[in-house]
Design a protein around this nucleic acid. Sequence first.
DNA 1: ATTGTGGCCTGCCCGC
DNA 2: TGCGGGCAGGCCACAA
Length: 259
Amino acid sequence: MPELIEVELYRQALDAAVGRRISAVLTPDPTYARNNLSGDEVRAALVGTTIESTTRIGKLAVAALDSGHQLGLRFGMTGRLVVDDVAVIDELEYSSGRDDPSWDRFVLHFADGGVARINDPRRFGSVELDPDLTRLGPDATLISALALTAALQSDRSVKAVLLDQSRIAGLGNLLVDESLWRAGIDPARSARSLDDETVRHLRRVIRRTLTQLTRRGGSHRGDLQDERHQGGICPSDGASLTRRTVAGRTTISCPAHQR
DNA sequence: ATTGTGGCCTGCCCGC
DNA sequence: TGCGGGCAGGCCACAA
C-alpha cells in the first residue's frame, strides 16, 4: 500500500466526493468488502446516502455518510483511488502504472455522474462499513513523545512495533526502514531498549520524514530507496547495507551507523 | 495475552 | 523471445 502518505492523498481526492449523493455501487470483487458483507448489503447501506466528510487514521481512509454510518477504505499494497477519472498517484512502487478496468474492485457512482473507484490489481485492499477505529493506534503524523514511548514498551523489535498499526497507525515497511535509518537505530533492536532521548529523536525523525517525503511525492522517495537492493550502499556513510528479514519484512539497514 | 509465521492474490522483473 | 522463480509499500487467521 500505499502507506500513510499515499492514503492522505487518497483522502484528499475523496474530498471531491463530499456533498455528492451515491446513486449506485458496483462490487465486481465479491470478497472486497470485509465482514462477509455481500454486494447487496453494501449497496443497501450506501446507495442514496451522501458523503459528508472524510478523515484518515493511519492507512485507513474514512468517508462519513449522512446516514450516520462510515465507509472505511483500505488500499492494501497496490490499491489506488481514482475519483472522477483523476488518479492522484499514477504509479505505485511494486505495482503497475496501468489502470486496467478489470482491476476495479469497488466503484461508487454519484448522482451527478462522477465516479470514485478503487483499482487494485493484487486485491489486498478492502472496504468496510463502520470500521472499528479503536483498533488503530495514534496516527504517526500526530503521535506525541509520550504516546510513542508507551507504544515502544514491548520486547519485540522496534521495527515490529512501528509496523504494528494498533500501536502507531500509518507507517509501512518503507517508511519504517527510512525513519530508522535516518535515526540511526537498528531495526532489530528491542523496542524497550530505546532510552527517552532516543525516543524523542525518533519521533522528530518520523515526523520530519513524513513531511519531507510528502513534499517529495511519496513513501518511495526516501534517501534509502535507491539502495534497497542487493549490494546497496549507505548514502550516509558508504558502508555496505544489510538486507535481512525483520518483523517478517524485507529490511534494509546500515550496520555502520544504525545501532 | 502476546508474538511470530504462513498465506492471501496478482503483476512484474530478472536471469537463463 | 519465452519462461520460471522470486519478489512486492498490508493485514488477517492461526498456532505456540
